[in-house]
């Protein structure tokens, strides 16, 4: 199995591809990181739990997509029209199994007000989600590690298991992009999860270098330690 299209990690230059085994490891860890960060409260699979989003009972399509949404953007209906189009076009089961979201929001510095803000954001999302028939699970970026990515309001990352690339789509989406995403989500067989599960034990010991400015940053909530692990890579 080819790894994802990761071009750089840590301090490596874009022109110096990583050694193949390491690339493979990073690719696997990246997917695992994604799965874990989408459900921060779920313990690691190594502790007897399965990661959300990439379990053995994966439905019809094998690819997954990941929304990064800025909480402030949800008040702008035209801005999120492509999200609603996508949700309407996807069967509920596909939304629930193959689509994930992370909601980014700003927060005041003091702890008490930050906790209140976190509750307010959750409450409002609950109303918004029901009114718009959004079925995909959302994780709340309480640590604000994704804030710098949310400038455009919304971002979609699609993990294409066939090509082993991660595709980035900025909002608003074109009709062609929307159709491409739909096709990729609805087609294909289930991904080979055995390989991912074999690698899970290594995750705790993996610490990449600081992220670069042009790279996408993934954060993993390690649930127990509350430390975040950053993974950087270039998006194709």
């Amino acid at each position: 199995m080819k790894p994802f299209g990761i071009c750089a990690a840590g301090k490596r230059s874009k022109d110096r591809p990583m050694r193949r085994p390491f690339r493979r490891l990073v690719g696997i860890l990246l997917v695992f990181a994604l799965a874990a960060c989408l459900c921060p409260s779920v313990p690691w699979a190594a502790e007897g739990q399965q990661s959300i989003g990439l379990d053995a009972a994966h439905p019809t399509g094998k690819n997954i997509c990941w929304f990064l949404l800025d909480f402030d953007a949800i008040f702008c209906a035209p801005c999120l029209a492509p999200l609603f189009d996508l949700c309407r076009a996807l069967p509920a089961i596909v939304q629930e199994r193959q689509v994930r979201g992370v909601l980014v929001y700003s927060s005041p510095p003091d702890k008490e007000r930050a906790e209140r803000r976190a509750k307010i954001v959750r409450k409002k999302w609950q109303g918004f989600m029901k009114a718009n028939d959004i079925r995909f699970p959302v994780a709340f970026d309480d640590a604000h590690v994704f804030n710098y990515l949310s400038k455009s309001g919304a971002l979609l990352l699609l993990f294409d298991f066939d090509l082993h690339v991660i595709k980035k789509y900025g909002f608003p989406l074109t009709r062609e992009q929307l159709n491409e995403i739909l096709e990729l989500l609805l087609s294909g067989d289930r991904p080979d999860m055995e390989f991912f599960h074999q690698m899970m034990g290594l995750v705790r010991h993996f610490r990449p270098a600081q992220p670069g400015k042009t790279h996408v940053l993934f954060a993993v909530d390690e649930s127990i330690s509350r430390q975040f692990v950053f993974y950087e890579f270039l998006v194709h």
Binding site: F75, R116, K119, I120, K123, K124, Q126, G127, F128
Partner: peptide, 9 residues
């Protein structure tokens, strides 16, 4: 309130 579904915004 934060705990009911009366109002969202």
């Amino acid at each position: 309130s934060l705990d009911d579904e009366a109002l969202f915004q």
